[in-house]
Design a protein around this nucleic acid. Structure first.
Lengths: 366, 366
DNA sequence: CTGAAAGCGCTAACAA
DNA sequence: TTGTTAGCGCTTTCAG
C-alpha cells in the first residue's frame, strides 16, 4: 500500500492538502528538523523521558514534530519495547446482545490512552478459545479482558501463571487471583424476588444459568437466600438449571419444569435470554404473561421494553462493566504487582409489563 | 509482561508443560537449530519464498520450527514489510444491533487468513471518524471495511486518493470507485410494498432514512418505483425523511406525518429502528398495530420476532454482508489493480404480526 | 544534558 | 540454493 496519511487539516479548517501521499515522517525527520539527534528527539517526545532533556530543546523538538505532523509508529515502538499498545478482548459471541455494550465500554475507556482492542469470539468452545487467545498473544497483546470465565477454567489458570495480565468481566473463576468487574448477582436477584414477593408470589421458579459459571451459581445462591429471607416457599423442584445462556436453553428449562408438574406463579430467569426463551414456551402452551405467570430477566439488554410483554429485568450497567474492566487492566499493566481486586456493580430492577399480581398457579398438576 | 506462550499441548492431549515462561523463540533460534542462516530459515518458513530453498533444507527448518514451537513475530514482520495483517473496521456504533452480525461476518471471514480486525466507532461524528481512521492508519492497517459511508464523504475520497484500500459495506458513496457489498435496497422495499398491496393497502407512508446515505435514497427511490408499479397512491406527503437511523428519529418522523394530517394505512420504515420508533408513537397515541396501521421494517436485526407485535421486515443477510466485504478487501489488498466491483445481497421479506389487512386509515384529518 | 551505537525480529537486496 | 549485509522506526544503554 502506498504510504499515506491524513493531516486532519480539513477538520482544522486549514488549507493544506488533506492527504500527503509522501513518505510519512519518521523520528529521524523530526530530529533533523529540530537539529538534534534522533535519540534526543525520542526522549523529548516521550512523556516518561522528557525530564531527561533540556526544556528548551524539548520544546523545539515538539514544535518540529507537530509541524511535520509526526506521529510515532507504534509497530516500531512495539518491536523495541515488546509492547503493542493493544489488548485482547475475549467474549463468547459478539452477536449476543449482552456484549456490544460491554465492548463499547472497553473501547471508550481505551480510546484516550492510545490502546486498541482486538476482539475474539470463542463461541463457548474451549479449543476455539485456546486458539483465539494464542493468536492474541502472538500479536503481543499486553493483556486480556476476559468475559468467558468458567469457575473451573484451566486456560485462564495457565495464562495467569504464565504471567499474562488479565481482568475478568461479568464472570469470575474460582481460585484465580485475578481482578474482576462483576454485576452484583445476588443483589440483583434479591431485588427481583422482593418485587415478586410484594406482588404476592409465593412459589417462584428459578431458571438458573449454567452452574459452571459464577453468574449461574451466584444468582442461584442469591435466589435461595432471597427466598429464605422473604419467607417464600423453598422447593428444590423450583430450581431448574439451564445448560446455556440462551433462549433455547431457557425454553427447554421451562418445559422441563412444566412437564414435571411443578407449580409456580412467577419465574426468575438467570438472564434475559433465558427469559426470552420462556416467551416462546408461553406461546407454545397458551400461557399468558403476566396474567398466568410473571417473569423477570437479568442484565437489561436493549429493546426489552419493546417485547410482548415488556420484560421486567435487573438492569446491569453494562457499558460501565466494560470501561471499569479496561481501566483495571490498564492499571494492572502499569503496575503488575498491585494486588487483584474485585468491583461489584449494582443492578437496578427495571419493572415492566412481564410482572403482575399473582393469580392462579401454572403447572398445578401435582 | 513476562514473555510467555501457550503450546496448545493440553488440547492435543500431550503431557508437555502447557506454559513456557522462557523467552519466546525467534527466527534466529530456529535457524541455529536447523543449522542454517536466519535468512534461509525465513525463506523456508514463508510460503511465498519457500520455492527458493532446497526442499530438504526447508523440511529441516520446518521441523526445527515446530520442535521449538516457533511462531513468527508479526510486529517484527510488520515493521519490515510495512504490513500488519490487520484491517480496520469503521462502524457508527457497535451497540446498534445492525452491526454485530456484520462484524462477526468480517471476523469469521478473516479468521482463517491470519488477519485481525480493529474496530472503531464513529458515533456518526465526522471529526471522531477522522481521528479514529487516523489511528487505524497509524497502526498500519492494510485496508478498511467502512460501514459509515455517506453519499458525499470527503474523508473517504481523500483516503481513496491517498491509496488506502477499502471496501464499503451496507452503504456506498457517490463518485467513489471503491468496491462495496450492499443489500438490494430497492428490491427489499419492493417486496415490502407488494406484500402491503396484497393486503389491500393503498396509502403507504414511507419513513425514509437520512437522504445523505445511499440506503436512505435508494430505499426511497425503491418506494417510489414500487408504488408506481403497484398502482398505489403516490402522494408527496407520504414520504417523510428521518434525520437519523434511530428509534427517536423514526418516532419524530411518524409524529410529523400524523400531525400534518396525512392519512395512510401502512408504514414502510427505512430500517428496523425507525420502525421501532413507530411502536413508541403507537403507544403514545393509542394506535393499534396492525389493526389500525401495518408496519414493515428493514434489515432483520435480532429479536424482532419477540416484539409487540412481531415486526415484519426485509431481512438482510448481515453476516454475509460482513464476510463478503472482508473477502473483497483481502482480494483488493492482494491485487490492488483489480477493478472495483459491487455485490448486491437480496433481502427476504419475513412476514410477521405487524402487517395485516388494511382497515380504516389513520390520520384522516384531511 | 546530548550524541553515538546497538539492536528489537524479521525480510529483501545482493553476492557468492 | 544459500549466506551476507543492511535496515524497517524506535528506544536504550553507554559515553561524552
Amino acid at each position: 500500500m502506498r504510504s499515506h496519511r491524513l493531516t486532519g487539516a480539513r477538520s482544522c479548517g486549514q488549507i493544506a492538502p488533506t492527504i500527503n501521499a509522501v513518505r510519512t515522517p519518521t523520528l529521524k525527520d523530526v530530529a533533523k528538523a529540530a537539529g538534534v539527534h534522533p535519540a534526543t528527539a525520542s526522549r523529548a517526545l516521550n512523556p516518561d523521558t522528557r525530564k531527561l532533556v533540556n526544556a528548551e530543546t524539548a520544546r523545539r523538538v515538539q514544535k518540529a514534530a507537530s509541524a511535520l505532523h509526526y506521529t510515532p509508529n507504534p509497530i516500531a515502538r512495539g518491536l523495541k519495547t515488546a509492547k503493542s499498545s493493544t489488548i485482547g478482548v475475549v467474549i463468547p459471541d459478539l452477536t449476543n446482545p449482552l456484549f456490544p455494550p460491554i465492548v463499547r465500554g472497553i473501547e471508550d475507556a481505551l480510546g484516550p490512552t492510545g490502546y486498541s482492542a482486538l476482539i475474539v469470539n470463542t463461541d463457548s468452545d474451549q479449543a476455539r478459545e485456546r486458539a483465539q487467545v494464542e493468536s492474541l498473544l502472538l500479536r503481543q497483546v499486553e493483556g486480556l479482558v476476559v468475559a468467558t470465565a468458567l469457575l473451573e477454567h484451566p486456560l485462564l489458570s495457565e495464562l495467569h501463571q504464565g504471567g499474562t495480565r488479565m481482568v475478568l468481566v461479568n464472570r469470575r473463576s474460582d481460585n484465580l487471583d485475578v481482578s474482576s468487574v462483576l454485576p452484583d448477582d445476588a443483589g440483583g436477584i434479591d431485588q427481583a424476588i422482593r418485587h415478586l414477593a410484594q406482588l404476592g408470589h409465593r412459589r417462584i421458579l428459578h431458571l438458573a444459568g449454567p452452574l459452571s459459571t459464577s453468574t449461574g451459581t451466584t444468582r442461584a445462591l442469591g435466589y435461595h437466600g432471597a427466598i429464605r429471607s422473604q419467607g417464600l416457599e423453598a422447593d428444590p423442584a423450583l430450581v431448574v438449571p439451564c445448560a446455556q445462556w440462551s433462549e433455547a436453553a431457557g425454553a427447554a428449562g421451562l418445559r422441563t419444569a412444566l412437564d414435571a408438574g411443578t407449580s409456580f406463579t412467577a419465574i426468575v430467569a438467570a438472564n434475559d435470554l433465558i427469559a426470552l426463551g420462556c416467551y416462546d414456551v408461553f406461546a407454545e402452551r397458551g400461557i399468558d404473561c403476566p396474567d398466568d405467570v410473571s417473569v423477570v430477566g437479568f442484565n437489561g439488554i436493549p429493546f426489552l421494553d419493546k417485547l410482548r410483554p415488556p420484560l421486567t429485568t435487573a438492569t446491569v450497567p453494562l457499558h460501565r462493566l466494560g470501561s471499569e474492566a479496561a481501566g483495571m487492566l490498564l492499571e494492572t499493566i502499569a503496575e503488575p504487582d498491585r494486588p487483584a481486586r474485585s468491583v461489584l456493580l449494582a443492578p437496578v430492577l427495571e419493572v415492566r409489563g412481564s410482572t403482575a399480581k399473582a393469580r392462579r398457579a401454572v403447572g398445578s398438576r401435582r
